[in-house]
Nucleic acid binder design. Structure first.
Lengths: 142, 142
DNA sequence: TATTGTTATACTCTATAACTATA
DNA sequence: TATAGTTATAGAGTATAACAATA
């Protein structure tokens, strides 16, 4: 409860001060997800980012207006929207990620090698515990 | 970059679904800070929460309107605002914290005892690295 | 003149609810 | 009738810039 917001603050602060090509955190995370899941639909984005469909729609819309994301209607079932990054989106994501990771890495470097190993192990454990949590808590209530 | 937002999402999700007496995360963190630093001024809140003075002013204003925080002008230097929790604020904070911590604890319990130790050590290390980043010059011993 | 805080303005994120389009 | 997505509306958080009050 205490540490996570500290780290979040740092990430956001870095993203602000280094512009990040003007990406907000939800936008950034959406780009990351679409980079690894080309052709995903909006519902999948919403579930992954952990927001409602309506919120995801707005975030994706902003990204589409900036030509970072391409929206296409599926032929099979025209209710679905297929999403993927444009070339500009990919380039933007790469540069944004490099910037932010570099600054996070700087922080981590301040820790001892043992602490770095500990942090890495802990994050893996936390990911295992938290990563699959949004599916049950998000799907059932809709 | 990947795990921290997951945990944040979980915290926020818990806060939403369990109402948290309608506290947002910045409001919650502000109450926590004031609980441990009675009489702190607005600038200290802003620095601790990691936002600008203007943003802190808005958050505190919302808390004051809900009678959770009491604002008082300092006699010595009337530019300063002294902040503290009301009784209602204290009660609200306690219940909110109990709820959220209980749910976080549930998650952590899913990890093995070794993993729990690892997570704890990692959070300590991260706190050491990230906590003083906001206020390198503010070394009060409170 | 410097410092503390507030207000004005503008933007993003977020939710819920109502709506459209498709199946 | 059910599902995917959008739009409308509202509220909170955030920033910068301009302002007020105090020292």
């Amino acid at each position: 409860m205490e540490v996570v917001p500290l780290v979040m603050r740092h990430i956001r602060s870095e993203m602000r001060t280094h512009r990040m090509r003007g990406l907000s955190l939800p936008q950034f995370r959406t780009l990351i997800f679409l980079n690894r899941n080309e052709g995903a639909c909006l519902s999948q984005v919403a579930e992954h980012v952990g927001v409602t469909l309506a919120s995801a729609s707005k975030v994706v819309n902003a990204l589409a207006e900036r030509r970072l994301v391409i929206r296409m209607t599926l032929r099979n079932d025209r209710r679905y929207v297929s999403l993927k990054l444009s070339k500009l989106g990919i380039a933007t994501l790469i540069r944004a990620r490099e910037d932010t990771e570099a600054h996070l890495a700087e922080r981590i470097t301040e820790l001892s090698p043992e602490q770095q190993v500990t942090v890495f192990a802990a994050l893996l454990a936390l990911r295992g515990s938290f990563a699959d949590q949004q599916a049950p808590s998000n799907e059932k209530e809709r």
